[in-house]
Amino acid sequence: MVPFLLPFFEWSDNSFLGAWIRSKTWVFPVIETVHILALTVLLAGIIVIDLRLMGLMMRRMTVSGLTRELKPFINWSIAIILTTGAALYSSEALKCFDNPAFWFKMTFLFLALIFQFTLYRSTTKTEQTTPGKGWTVGILSLILWFAVGWGGRGIGFI
């Protein structure tokens, strides 16, 4: 896909971490399970805030109040997902390099993270959001994160 990055993928594949994960039957499934548990927490926080932005749930609470409570869970789960994800990647970096689902996932992950810490952050901080902005930001967030999830699941199937 991006030829100039191939050396980095080769280096990852040859790394101590990647080789160690490959050498043990149990390590990959355990890391993958932690990755999935963190995904559940992240999606839960994102979906609840998105549905509230659209005015479809928890209307007794403000968007900013809801976000304040869920933000630690979202941020921690993103940190765990990125760490476990990097470990999983290192164990099969060269396989990922040739996998279109991996590049699909990384593209949307990049976009989702930028969105999450810019427009999403400012919108969910304010006390009052117009329904139009709420719907736009909510739907964009759902599309971006679900694209990441679908891409991730696709890596194993392709």
Partner: peptide, 15 residues
Amino acid sequence: GSHLLGLGVSAGTIA
């Protein structure tokens, strides 16, 4: 994939 991403709504709201 649907079963996996459905976790966010089911297990997520339960959590």
